[in-house]
Design a protein around this nucleic acid. Structure first.
Lengths: 335, 335
DNA sequence: GAGCCTAACGCAACCGTTTGCGTTGGTCGA
DNA sequence: TCGACCAACGCAAACGGTTGCGTTAGGCTC
């Protein structure tokens, strides 16, 4: 509860000296520094970010905009952002859009319009022209995580490439009858990722001469439960693919559950591959093309801090790495 | 980028009048109000929360401390907190402990020590005596979500009661051979919830004369994958229970998957009940004792805002409601 | 028409820190 | 011995709002 002024009065010195001593700036003798710090500790001094920010113009806080915090990918990204930002001494101010697609009324109506943050990290969000103009007006660094956003520096996986790699694995194993579990997550604010993955699946499958029935294209909404339902229905019919390519690990695990429920075996009867690198995948013996959302969040956080501290922003797409984790859910087709 | 002073200069009036006009305070004619607002809009005025907070002492922000943002329960709570806080005009400053059990070095080293937030919401976290003393020193409202914390106003489900209710359902169906999927989540900062649920399971089962083999007590770590593994192992043996009580829905869904993989049927061969009310439960036909973490978060947020705005804090436990959602995963035992 | 009231606005101090610049006293080199 | 120089510290003006109080002018009452 004590202020710098009170510490100064207590010691009979000036506020400026206290301020410098506390921050380790030159111009204060070591003896005085020790003394000031001791008194500050004793008086329970707590610096005011508001007051400091007033003069310096820096808040040591960055805003994080996320479509729906409860979804796996987004929470992983935020977790990574938080970790890296904490290490750099910054706070994270959270904006969960939470099914509210109107970015403008949410994010802007709140602390963006109150100069509370030094920068912004937006996760998998698309913006209108108007909103982009507002961003410009705010004149703060903006970094995007997810599908490439041409307006900002973006980090994310190349959805075409990661799907192509997954297909390469399946086709390499000999699968030529492929199903797809994908669809669109209505809570996401960007459909680009889902569209790209589905597109590349189709293109790659057809190029390899694989058989893809229209009824093998399943809409799982990027959710485990929905994927399980859809897959269960697929295997209640009289024809099914030898391999199932899932646009996310959550859906893949749902699919595996449905396949078991249908009395079939993985991978003997049907192979399953996912995309994401979900924590639970190991227990499900799930083969997957793993990306690392936390690392992407950390990268974005470091980048944003660098820009705040003067680095010149580069406006290009930073492709996040992905790697095949081969486990027990994929094998050569049995028949 | 404009300030109040610049607006005042532009109009040839005083800063105080601009301030009052912008906030709709009395003492300004309607004509002037309109004029000020128009000029503010035109000049792209953005209020500074730091400057306002300096004089008022209010930040319109509350800190949220969470053990691990990526876990279902916590992300749901935070989502609810964010929604309610946004509605009240407050920002949320996030502190993800993220496997870092040392609350002191994380939360306190950051903006708590910089007076950035008006209050604190702590989710399922235990504190040391020292940390509690620090909280007291900060003199700000603190609300807890999760297991009852005697030091704070707490909202959460009564873990004994919710497990007892789940057991009542299973015992009522006639199950007398019960397995348990629980264990401890090593990422949680509080073991009380898991311990209470397991304790009540045991007590209730024994009181009803149910058979519980030691090897039917499964350690799922509150995670879906681990629960699946443990359950798979259980059903690879030669004796198994007729009903499986799971301490969380995630584990229950993992268990269902394992049961299917073992070639058994739900609920014909084994009934499964979960606790939580997870979104995916419906697709899994999962019977569950549903709680509502988002609603708990919202309640905590509203409570904290009330206390910030002067309400006298009441230091008692607020039991969160729960309700049985009966679906297809439970039935009377077949044999 | 004098006195009073009130709406509408200005003045200036204040919130807690930071920072450029001015002021000391002492050390050092020539 | 005398500037020169520097380390160590103080002064005071910002930063951008908020707020208590003072002032003014017009309208009202009796």
């Amino acid at each position: 509860m004590a202020t710098i002024g009170q510490i100064a009065a207590e010691l009979g010195i000036s506020k400026s000296t206290v301020s410098r001593a506390l921050r380790g700036l030159p111009g204060v003798s070591q003896d005085l520094i020790d003394e000031v710090k001791a008194v500050a500790e004793r008086m329970g001094y707590v610096p005011s970010a508001a007051a400091a920010g007033l003069t310096t113009g820096r808040n040591y806080a960055v805003g994080v905009v996320v479509p729906a915090l409860t979804r796996w990918f987004y929470s992983e990204v935020v977790s990574g952002v938080d970790r890296a930002l904490a290490a750099a001494g910054y706070d994270v101010v959270l904006y969960d859009m939470d099914r509210n697609h109107d970015v403008g009324t949410r994010a802007f109506a709140r602390s963006l319009l109150r100069k509370r943050v030094d920068a912004l990290i937006v996760v998998a969000t698309v913006f209108t022209e108007h909103e982009l103009a507002e961003f410009d007006a705010l004149e703060m660094p903006v970094i995007a995580v997810g599908p490439s956003a041409p307006q900002f520096r973006t980090i994310g996986v190349d959805d075409h490439a990661i799907m192509a790699a997954a297909m390469e694995h399946m086709l390499g194993l000999g699968h030529r009858q492929l199903g797809y579990v994908g669809g669109y997550d209505e809570e996401s604010l960007s459909l680009a990722s889902a569209a790209d993955r589905e597109h590349t699946f189709m293109k790659t499958a057809l190029a390899a001469g694989a058989l893809v029935q229209p009824e093998w294209m399943l809409a799982g909404g990027y959710k485990q439960g929905a994927a399980m339902r859809a897959t269960r229905e697929l295997f209640s019919r009289d024809s099914w693919p030898t391999g199932l390519v899932c646009a996310s690990d959550e859906m893949a695990m749902g699919a595996i559950c449905a396949i078991h429920a249908a009395g079939k075996r993985v991978p003997e009867d049907v192979s399953v591959i996912g995309i994401d690198g979900h924590e639970y995948g190991a227990d499900y013996e799930l083969t997957t093309m793993a990306q690392n959302p936390q690392a992407q969040g950390e990268w974005a956080a470091r980048q944003v801090v660098a820009e705040i501290e003067g680095a010149t922003p580069v406006q290009e797409f930073e492709p996040a790495p992905f790697t095949l984790i081969q486990r027990g859910s994929t094998a050569a087709p049995g028949r």
